[in-house]
Amino acid sequence: MIVAERKPFAEIAQAVAGYRRVLVVGCGTCVAVCLAGGEKEAGILAAQLDLAGQLAGRQQRFATACVERQCDREFLSELDAAAREHDALLSLACGAGVQFLAERHPTLPVLAGLNTTFIGVNQDVGRWDERCRACTDCLLSLTGGVCPVTMCPKGMVNGPCGGAVEGRCETDPERDCAWTVIHARLSDSDRLANLEVLVPPRDHSRANLPGRQAHAAYLRRYSSHD
């Protein structure tokens, strides 16, 4: 899922300072799971902004709403009426959700309450770890299910750099060297031959441009947006 974290409060407070009626819009999918932008967090942030506005002597009102996903039109449409009653929308979605909301309300200021951090996994209650860089050319079959593009800071795809110390990364002694893990995983599953494959330079041509993909069958049958 997409992982995000709330922006520093002062930054958010400053962004909304000029608006009287602000709708704090939560997003009920990824950012709700990572406790950054769901219904609960929208409520807490609105309460905080309300108190802060009062302390600063501003006449401001903060309301909250939460939709299932801000990256889907069918859910965003639920907000249309409420949005018209406000001077600004403060979105607690990932960057994609904020943009889609802004696209739907081009005349309203749509502000971002979160910093989107990565695509990751729920490692423990309250802890998330990055696992994917969305590089458009997955190597995981070859690398034992451990992504060198994500887990190696240098994204080395042909083996480790020379900086690893006792199987730890040169950037952080707490971090495993991705290639040590890859080697161990392939060794355990009897696939060490995978390592001899000389991986050619990555084709970035697709990832360099804003991504776009289509499912031809669905597009033919259902599409209303050309």
């Binding site: 409060f9 002062a10 407070a13 807490i44 905080q48 108190l51 802060a52 302390l55």
Partner: peptide, 8 residues
């Protein structure tokens, strides 16, 4: 932490 952020 939350009230500290707003200056209380």
């Amino acid at each position: 932490e939350l009230i500290a952020e707003i200056g209380l």
